Amino acid sequence: MTGSAEDEYRVVAAGVEKAFGANRVLKGVSFTVRRGTATAIIGPSGSGKTTLLRTLNALDRADAGVIRVDDVELDFGTPVSKPDVRRFQSRSGFVFQGHNLFPHRTVLQNVIEGPVFVQKRPRDEAVAEAVALLDQVGLADKQDRYPYQLSGGQQQRVGIARAVALKPQLLLFDEPTSALDPELVGEVLSVIKDLAVEGWTLVIVTHEIQFAKQVSQQVLFTDDGLILERGTPDEVIGDPKEERTRQFLDRILNPL
């Protein structure tokens, strides 16, 4: 599989396999993500959603298959070097379920960590951009606070600002609202919607079905390590073709 930065696709995955011991979590998954679009990955617990997302940043290295993110391609059927993995990982920013902020560093220090110490960018430049990002996510007045002084929603917004500060080609979100109290979910989803409107390329694992419908141009429904259905939100969520997709959505959207 070949490609270049000029291609219309920001992500191309082909035949991605991943197992943990005897458990085959991904079974030859293939899909593409167009640049400047949002893709939502939905499906039941244990269907492989998070593992699939983590392979896109090599947090979990695939056992087989090829993944290209922007201009960097890894063929997991061959030995992959650490420098190649670092280049691959530098193309994306990852927003975790549980914030993963450095507890002993302020909000501002958390956001500038990657640009200054990983990307070796000038500190003054990184600070100015971090302050602007914190303003964008509604936390301009929190830059000197520590994570324990913030709500869960505020911590997650800091996590988003930290990922965006790296200026990646791709932003990956792993259930970004799953650890939040219900009243805090909206503030985080609003920030992600703004990023989608700005034209960032997003891949979002989410259980917020209505949010997936509103923000994404593509929805992937996963089950048992496979992508069973893909298409626009209207196709997959509004008029699913697969019985398994219909069962899942009915259970989520029409709980007893």
Rank of each mutant, 00 (worst) to 15 (best):
D141Q: 13
L150N: 03
S45G: 11
A163W: 07
Q119S: 00
S47K: 03
G153Q: 01
L56K: 06
V131N: 00
A161I: 09
A126V: 05
P79N: 04
E125K: 10
G114Y: 07
A163G: 12
K82S: 10
F94P: 02
R123P: 01
S81A: 13
R121L: 08
V80Y: 01
R86E: 13
P44D: 05
T55R: 02
V116Q: 02
H104K: 06
N110H: 08
F102K: 06
P79M: 07
V95Y: 09
L150Q: 01
S81Q: 03
A126W: 08
P147I: 14
Q97H: 11
R145V: 00
T78F: 00
V72L: 05
D70Y: 12
R105G: 02
Y148F: 15
F94L: 15
L133V: 14
V107H: 13
T55G: 01
G65Q: 10
V95W: 09
R145L: 07
V72R: 12
V137F: 11
D124I: 06
D144L: 07
N100R: 12
G153S: 01
D75L: 03
Q155Y: 14
D141H: 12
V127E: 15
D144R: 13
F76K: 02
V111Y: 06
N57H: 09
R105Q: 12
G159V: 09
V72D: 04
A165P: 04
L53M: 14
Q156C: 10
L133P: 11
F102Y: 14
Q136T: 02
D141Y: 08
L52P: 06
Q149L: 11
A132G: 04
Q109T: 00
K120P: 00
H99G: 03
G114Q: 01
V137T: 13
D141S: 05
G48N: 10
G98N: 13
K142V: 12
D71G: 10
A64R: 14
I160G: 08
G152I: 04
P122W: 14
G153L: 09
V72T: 14
V72Q: 14
N100T: 08
